[in-house]
C-alpha cells in the first residue's frame, strides 16, 4: 500500500464516527440548473434596476430633468423679459412677480436665472460630448493598439495635461482671435482642448483591461477583424468608468465656464449665464448678497445633481458589486 501522509500525525486514541446527514433534510439538487422563471436581465437592465432603488439617483435625475426643462422652455417658468432692466429697481428686494428681487442694473434676478440656464448647461453638455469624442477615441486607440502609437498618444495627452484647465483657458481665451468672437462655442472648444486628456486616460485604462479578455480573443478566432472587435466588444465593455467620469466632468465644466465668465474671458456679457450673473453681482455683494446667492445656488444645485448622478451610476455599474 502506498504511503499515506496526512498533514499531521494521528492522535488516534479516539474513534472517528461516520456521520451521514438526513437525506430528507439535505436533498440533492440538480447540478447547474437554470432558473427559467426570472426575466432576462442585461447588465444595463440590471444597472438600471439598481439605480431606480437609489434615492441619490432619483433626486439627482429629477433635478437634472428640471434643469433641462428650464433650459429648453424658459418661457414655462417666467414671462418677465430678463433683458428689460430698469435702474429704478436697482438692488430692489423681491416684490410681486419678481420673487428674487433685482440686480444692480435693475434686472429681474429670477428671470435672468431661468434664462441663464441654457448657456451654462450647453457649455457643460457640449464640452462633455467633445471630450468624450476626442478623449474617448484617442484613449481607446492608444489602449487597444498599444506599442509606439500608445507611447506617442500618451505623451500628447501628457503635454495637454500639463496645461492646467483654468490657466490654459485664460491663455487661449485671451487670444485676440478668440476674444473677439467669444460665444458658447469658443468656451466649449477651450474646455475640450484642455479637458480631453483626462477622459483619454480613463478610456485607455478601461480598454487595456478589456482588450485581452477571453471574449475578445474568442471573437478574433471567429474571424472578427481587429477594428470590429474594438467597436463591437471592447468599447461597449469599457464604457462604465468613462460614463461615470463624464457625468462628473459635466458638473466640472459648468463650474469652469462660470469661473471663466467671472474672470471676464468666458461667455461674452451679452450672453445670459449664471457665471456672468455671479461676476456682475460681486460689486453689490455687500448691500445685496442675494443677487450673487441665487445664481450661485442654481449653479451649485445643477453641478451637485451631476456629481450625485455620477456617484449613483458608479455604484450601479460597480463591477465588484456585480460579480456576486
Amino acid at each position: 500500500m502506498p504511503e499515506n501522509t496526512p498533514i499531521s500525525s494521528t492522535s488516534s486514541n479516539h474513534r472517528i464516527e461516520h456521520f451521514v446527514a438526513d437525506i430528507e433534510q439535505t436533498p440533492l439538487q440538480a447540478t447547474d440548473s437554470l432558473n427559467e422563471q426570472a426575466a432576462p436581465l442585461s447588465l444595463w437592465a440590471e444597472a438600471w434596476k439598481n439605480l431606480r432603488r437609489q434615492p441619490l439617483f432619483i433626486i439627482s435625475a429629477l433635478l437634472i430633468l428640471l434643469t433641462l426643462t428650464v433650459a429648453f422652455f424658459p418661457g414655462l417658468f417666467t414671462q418677465t423679459v430678463p433683458t428689460q432692466c430698469d435702474l429704478i429697481n436697482s438692488n430692489a428686494g423681491p416684490d410681486g412677480g419678481h420673487p428674487l428681487g433685482f440686480t444692480l442694473q435693475g434686472c429681474d434676478v429670477y428671470a435672468r436665472l431661468i434664462h441663464g440656464t441654457q448657456a451654462s448647461l450647453a457649455v457643460g453638455v457640449f464640452s462633455t460630448l467633445g471630450v468624450l469624442i476626442i478623449g474617448g477615441t484617442i484613449g481607446a486607440i492608444a489602449g487597444y493598439y498599444g506599442g509606439w502609437l500608445d507611447a506617442v498618444l500618451a505623451r500628447l495627452a501628457d503635454i495637454f495635461f500639463a496645461l492646467p484647465l483654468i490657466l490654459g483657458a485664460i491663455v487661449i481665451n485671451s487670444l485676440p482671435a478668440v476674444r473677439e468672437h467669444r460665444s458658447v462655442w469658443t468656451v466649449v472648444a477651450t474646455l475640450v482642448v484642455l479637458g480631453w486628456p483626462q477622459i483619454a486616460r480613463i478610456t485607455r485604462g478601461a480598454v487595456i483591461e478589456v482588450r485581452n479578455a477571453d471574449f475578445v480573443v474568442a471573437a478574433k478566432s471567429l474571424g472578427v477583424s481587429r477594428v470590429k472587435a474594438l467597436i463591437t466588444h471592447v468599447i461597449p465593455n469599457s464604457l462604465s468608468p468613462v460614463i461615470v467620469i463624464a457625468t462628473v466632468s459635466l458638473g466640472v465644466f459648468i463650474v469652469a465656464e462660470a469661473t471663466l465668465s467671472f474672470l471676464g474671458i468666458g461667455l461674452p456679457g451679452t450672453v445670459m449665464s449664471w457665471g456672468n450673473d455671479i461676476a456682475a453681482a460681486q460689486t453689490s455683494l455687500r448691500n445685496n448678497p442675494s443677487t450673487l446667492l441665487w445664481p450661485a445656488v442654481a449653479l451649485s444645485i445643477t453641478v451637485l445633481s451631476f456629481i450625485m448622478l455620477g456617484d449613483a451610476v458608479r455604484d450601479a455599474l460597480d463591477p465588484k458589486a456585480r460579480k456576486r
Binding site: G251, V255, I278, L285, P289, S300, L304, I307, M308
Partner: peptide, 22 residues
C-alpha cells in the same frame, strides 16, 4: 463634501471673504 465640490471656488471665496472677513 459634495456641496463644497459643487460650489465654484470664486463663490466660496466671496462668501467666506464676506462672512469671515467683513
Amino acid at each position: 463634501s459634495l456641496v463644497v465640490i459643487a460650489i465654484p471656488t470664486f463663490v466660496l471665496g466671496f462668501v467666506l471673504q464676506f462672512v469671515v472677513g467683513v
